[in-house]
């Protein structure tokens, strides 16, 4: 059996420990070890963004990280966004604006949006389109996604 390494990671606010093969990809750790299947796999080549999660507050592609690389880190997945009070404003906005169809790219798109609005709370349409360059949606044609990001930006500004 391949060697393993012990990792300790806070995932969605909960401390987790596991013995993992060093080659285990973060996305597989989240999905297959922790059962957090909202993070999806779409491309193998770090291009589609479906696997986007946040590590220590920064959006990353979890297919291009080893689980061992995030030992000691804080990881947030799509499952962390909604609370008992309801959906996160970005989730609400994607729903309101029909920013999704099949929904497969959506968790990654929402996590990328979260990063975008963290860095730029009032993005222009151009900045939104540029800021989502790491994510592919094959269904929507992006217009409704842009609408959703704009709405989320307004909501989040109003909420703070």
């Amino acid at each position: 059996m391949a060697n393993t390494t012990k990792i300790e990671v806070r995932v969605n606010g909960v401390g987790r420990t596991a013995e993992v093969q060093p080659r285990l990809l973060l996305v597989h750790y989240l999905r297959d070890v922790l059962g957090l299947t909202g993070t999806h796999i779409g491309c193998e080549t770090s291009l589609c963004g479906a696997c986007t999660v946040m590590v220590d507050g920064a959006a990353v592609k979890s297919c291009t990280l080893l689980a061992v690389q995030v030992d000691g880190c804080e990881v947030q997945t799509i499952e962390s966004l909604a609370t008992d009070d309801g959906l996160h404003p970005i989730q609400e906005a994607f729903w309101d604006c029909h920013g999704l169809q099949c929904g497969f790219c959506t968790p990654g798109m929402i996590m990328a949006t979260r990063q975008l609005l963290q860095e730029n709370p009032s993005p222009s349409e151009e900045e939104i389109r540029h800021g989502l360059e790491g994510n592919i949606c094959r269904c929507t044609g992006y217009k409704h996604i842009v609408d959703a990001v704009q709405q989320a930006a307004e909501q989040m500004k109003a909420g703070t």
Binding site: S46, A59, K61, T64, L65, Q115, G134, N135
Partner: peptide
């Protein structure tokens, strides 16, 4: 380079 997620890492 790449995209925001790639630049973050």
């Amino acid at each position: 380079i790449g995209d925001p997620q790639v630049r973050n890492r």
